[in-house]
Write a protein that binds this DNA or RNA. Sequence first.
DNA 1: GTTCCTGCAAAAGCTTTGCAGAAGA
DNA 2: TCTTCTGCAAAGCTTTTGCAGGAAC
Lengths: 142, 142
Amino acid sequence: MEDHLTTYSEQLNCKGIRPSYQRVRILAYLHQAQVHPTVEDIFTALSPEIPTLSKATVYNTLHTFVEAGLVRDVNIDIDAQHYDIILEDHGHFKCSSCGKIYNFHLDLDQLTIDGLKEFKIHKKDVYFSGLCPDCQSKTNST
Amino acid sequence: MEDHLTTYSEQLNCKGIRPSYQRVRILAYLHQAQVHPTVEDIFTALSPEIPTLSKATVYNTLHTFVEAGLVRDVNIDIDAQHYDIILEDHGHFKCSSCGKIYNFHLDLDQLTIDGLKEFKIHKKDVYFSGLCPDCQSKTNST
DNA sequence: GTTCCTGCAAAAGCTTTGCAGAAGA
DNA sequence: TCTTCTGCAAAGCTTTTGCAGGAAC
């Protein structure tokens, strides 16, 4: 565990980000959780172990990470911003029933749009929504 | 003009929505503007002509329209929800410099994802961002 | 006349900001 | 030591909610 934290610390150094305890722990959480946590999720998860942790710090840290390209922001949910540690090309599916966000494989390079030749594209987001398999079976059985 | 309003009124009736003056005017604005207005935009545009208009009514109306399938909500902007009267398949590009939102042609049916066979997909959103041609030339000339 | 809608104000929720104290280099 | 970060509280924004009066049918 401590080894991992050291690795995260180095990862932050490489990006020119001061590896404070809070930042290392937040980065570690993002890697472990492998979900798409919100600021609230991260705060709730780490708060018991880091009692002095402030929500403002979580906001600051995530902004820093996004700017450094360490994480990706996921705007699929209008209620709150989600964050994703997986940087490879993929799309996001949000179940409108349970709210869970799934990844799906998607080659974004295949998404070349003729009408955007004059545009400089920095970010491509593909968001689907509907019902996940779990929620479909729940609905059918009622 | 009055003719158009009558048409919008009928359009609302078809969907089982009571064609109140406010609703008709908001629907008319969405058709005319052909941009991707926010609640604020709509309120600011109509407020001078409808002095008693309330922002809550604009919110209510847009929710009703989205539910009825008359407009599409565009979540590309984290600051505020945008609304789109164009229902045909297309993607959205947001310029991170000027904030303008552009439509681009995109056949969403071509976006079939193997990994989502078990999922029931209701909505597909494709959001790109970067620099629009106008903002690129501004940046280059400096 | 009954139902549904509007408008106002207040409240709720996410996010940002300002500043003093603390931690990192 | 000097810079940068953290934590707290307050403020800012968008959006939602409750309720009385008004419009639509």
